[in-house]
Write a protein that binds this DNA or RNA. Structure first.
Lengths: 344, 344
DNA sequence: CTGTTAGCGCCTTCAG
DNA sequence: CTGAAGGCGCTAACAG
């Protein structure tokens, strides 16, 4: 059996018209119980499936949501997507995944593709520095919702955690542990708001506690273990070496820990280290790592909910709801000098 | 601007017909250079985007691939999907993600949905015990390709690692370390081939080395840390407690390690532990864990390649190519009694 | 080189 | 209650 069966096929068999079949299959009330049953049975026996593509073309609604993330194989983004999927599936939506690979051009291509695919909305954790390209989406009247890496734009909703507060909490925690020379590793460009905000939180926490902000303590990296190691090399070439490091990425923080150990430094006694994201490995590794939890799965669910609310709102106006989740400080052995109860 | 612009809109502006516009935009040669330019310019100025939905309906080809996985937020499945995406994107395909949550019914629903969406193929890591439902896919003439958790079916390609050999290698390694009472934790039903095969490899390795296979040493779990702990409790209630544990899941193995430690047992001196999948945390954790690498990203790429080959084959016959990748034994501290050089 | 026509599969008026 | 006709956006013959 090769050809897919359409409502015409089953109409022909029953000597009725396609309209009748359509009505029977869609719960239209203007139809006799007898023919409805008949249609349903033959449809089943002929292994009929509605063609959603035709439906989508007709209705202008594809029931697909495009999701753009830098990459999909981290626990964070995987979990966000899981949250989105779980929340949206019951409403009949499907999600199309695109990876930007942290590349602005690729992200733009992804947007083009998704628009062409007639997605009903785009959820995005952006890697772009400017936001002009997003107007293409809005001009097409496609709802755009940012999660995690957002841009501030009117008419666009977003779901994020309070990154400023996360940066502040992490830094204050280091100060409370007695650190006075605290470095910050920014795992992305400050044009991306989350990295900007985490840095601002860091800076403000220093100021509020009478500690000077020093440019040489702020290093930009990419989010990788190796760049964490390189950053340590750079920091420890300074005259005044840091005694605390706040990294905006768990992966970078892991590299930091590895490099510090290689240099024979004790953690947290000599240097305290805290990351960001609560990736699972932070809890399992040799030295469990303090970090900031972002609740990715819930972030995904919230993103989906914001969308559902928006399309169900009367007139489907472009509301811009800014949902800000509270991050949570997770304290583990990489920052606590008084030994915690042995883990595990 | 709300309404999306179609080729009719731009045809009207230029006083030509839609067919001309279509030709101009698609590199058809039967058209004058002048009108082509004109069309292209006005198309651009009107912010025109081709509607892929219409194209898909017309051509019967959606350029979408459905991918079904148990869950998306593990490194393994995330990486497979990344591999698929990276390989397929350049060919203009997009992927639609579905999660089965390890539930046969949900998986069936996913299949139905994907068929209705007119996907050009379905890639699946199945959670189903029987394979009858997959005939729906084939009867619709939709290519089906399994990866990782496959079913053996004629006319269906698959990309897997050699799980039998992985189980064999893991078990033999434990034996070589001097273990004689080796338990196996199967993190899934034997009706799913990978778990069956890993167990068979385990069994054969025992036999080949003159060790009796004992049913009480084989425990079925779900893939979670807590069930790993529970399994240890069960095993250590036996009279002859195991001195080696091969788990078919890294997560379960992690639970095993945690529980063994809680009981004051030394790893690997008292009990050696090996997992399966090479999830990143296995390398970072307190006691680095031996495991089997499955090369998930490459598995994704291969799956995509098998599909591309298939659709490019003359006549697009249903070939069933069975690609079997070689797993790799990763030896770390959880099994090596002679201390390795201090890691990190 | 360009216009006309038909149709992909479905739904939705409008008649009967 | 059911049939006929039109259209969603696009392409592919077939004419001219």
């Amino acid at each position: 059996m090769v050809k897919k069966t359409t409502i015409y096929d089953i109409a022909k068999v029953l000597n009725v018209t396609a309209a009748t079949v359509s009505r029977a299959l869609n719960g239209n009330k203007n139809i006799s119980e007898a023919t409805r049953k008949l249609v349903e049975e033959t449809a089943a026996s002929m292994n009929y499936r509605p063609n959603k593509l035709a439906l989508a073309l007709k209705s202008g609604k594809s029931n697909n949501i495009g999701v753009i993330v830098p990459r999909i194989n981290t626990n964070f983004f995987g979990s966000v997507i899981r949250g989105i999927e779980d929340e949206l599936n019951p409403s009949g939506y499907h999600i199309i995944i695109c990876q930007s690979h942290n590349d602005e051009t690729k992200e733009l291509n992804n947007i083009e593709s998704l628009i062409n695919l007639q997605v009903d909305a785009i959820f995005m954790s952006t890697s772009s520095k400017n936001s002009k390209q997003f107007e293409k989406i809005l001009s097409k009247n496609i709802p755009l919702i940012f999660f995690d890496r957002k841009k501030t734009m009117s008419g666009v909703s977003s779901v994020t955690i309070d990154d400023y507060s996360g940066g502040y909490m992490a830094t204050r925690h280091l100060i409370e542990q007695g650190c006075t020379r605290i470095a910050h590793l920014a795992s992305g460009d400050f044009a991306i708001e989350i990295f900007h905000d985490r840095h601002e939180g860091y800076r403000q926490a220093l100021i509020d506690n009478g500690i000077d902000y020093r440019e040489e303590y702020v290093i930009h990296t990419r989010s990788s273990i190796s760049e964490g190691k390189a950053a340590v090399t750079e920091l420890f070439a300074l005259d005044e070496k840091p005694d605390g490091i706040f990294s905006s990425s768990d992966f970078v923080a892991l590299g930091v820990i590895q490099e510090l150990k290689a240099r024979g430094l004790r953690i947290p006694e000599d240097v305290s280290v805290i990351g960001f994201a609560n990736e699972p490995f932070t809890d399992f590794q040799e030295l469990s790592m303090s970090t900031i939890d972002q609740f990715p799965e819930q972030m995904g669910r919230l993103t989906a909910k914001v969308f559902l609310e928006q399309i169900e709102s009367p007139g489907m106006v472009q509301i811009d709801k800014k949902v800000v989740m509270k991050p949570e400080l997770i304290i583990r052995n990489s920052t606590i000098k008084k030994k915690l109860a042995e883990k595990i």
